[in-house]
């Protein structure tokens, strides 16, 4: 006879697993009302701490070779694969059917591989050498925008989460993610996958808690560069737009995406959190060299 050791579901901030500073928790339940776990009810200050961690990680992560970022995303997929059974069990607890749970985990792994591949390729696709009327070599390249705050999809606890995180970090950004409020378990277990994937601390920070309580902090922080919201609550959307205007955050609503389908993955998701930088490099008369720019 032994007592089962139950996991404490905690936050993921700066590569560590702290409890919420507020000391609060809520109970995650399945449809039948059975208690699944006590989950941290994250607070404003948790978000603040996560932002500091995310900002601190930007230079290192965006400075890595794109190929290395791809390797790390691939490593995340490997770690997820090795814990496949655990994730399926957890999704079953959260009311998914066996088939749906398996599909969710499989697609999540494939999606990470997909974005791992894109890490060192989207730049070629979205860069350009531009024709200009002057003696300049003129080119545009995408660069990461910085820190991205994300409110993850509610009904796709793992695949939705992976689908919004992967393109953001593939592009060299760091992020603070608020997990699905009703189905938060997979997000925290996914944080354990991230923690064992050579992903530097602070690149991904995962909070659990109430969307209603935290959304304003996700959108009005002056040191966050872009924000992503995945539900279609129009009052929340307009509030996000308004608060994001404070520092001209980029705002994206992924509210009509079917994460299970092909439209749930695209290099354009990476492009969303990139800034296009154009360089005017003085040169000698380009036509003189017979070039055709």
């Amino acid at each position: 006879m032994r007592l089962e050791v139950l996991k404490t579901y905690k936050l993921y901030i700066g590569g560590q697993y702290p409890r919420t500073e507020s000391g609060r928790y809520y109970i995650a339940r399945n449809k039948a009302g059975a208690q699944l776990a006590n989950v941290c009810l994250g607070s404003r200050k948790d978000f603040r701490n996560a932002q500091v961690a995310a900002r601190g990680a930007v230079a290192g992560w965006s400075g890595r070779a794109a190929f290395n970022r791809g390797q790390i995303l691939y490593r995340i997929a490997e770690m997820l694969e090795s814990r496949r059974a655990q994730f399926i069990d957890e999704l079953l607890l959260q009311d998914l059917s066996q088939a749906a749970a398996e599909a969710e985990v499989n697609t999540s792994i494939d999606r990470l591989i997909y974005y791992a591949g894109w890490c060192d390729k989207f730049q070629q696709l979205f860069s350009a050498v531009n024709p200009v009327a002057g003696s300049f070599f003129n080119f545009s390249v995408p660069e990461p925008t910085g820190v991205v705050s994300i409110i993850a999809p509610q009904n796709s606890p793992l695949l939705g989460l992976v689908s919004v995180i992967a393109p953001v970090i593939a592009g060299g950004n760091t992020c603070i993610v608020l997990a699905s409020e009703q189905k938060p378990l997979s997000a925290i277990t996914f944080a354990e996958v991230l923690g064992t994937s050579d992903l530097p601390g602070g690149v991904v920070n995962i909070l659990t808690g109430s969307v209603k309580e935290l959304v304003s902090w996700f959108s009005d922080h002056m040191d966050v560069n872009a924000t992503i919201y995945c539900e279609n609550d129009s009052s929340v959307q307009s509030s996000i737009r308004e608060k994001s205007a404070l520092n001209l955050k980029r705002v994206f609503f992924y509210d009509k995406k079917d994460w299970n389908s092909e439209e749930g993955q695209s290099p354009y998701f990476i492009l969303d959190t990139q800034e296009i930088k154009t360089t005017w490099h003085p040169i000698e008369n380009i036509a003189g060299a017979g070039g055709g720019y």
């Binding site: 902090w217 009005d220 922080h221 040191d223 404070l246 520092n247």
Partner: peptide, 8 residues
């Protein structure tokens, strides 16, 4: 009431 950025 809004967290600030060192950029400003």
């Amino acid at each position: 009431g809004v967290y600030q950025s060192a950029n400003y």
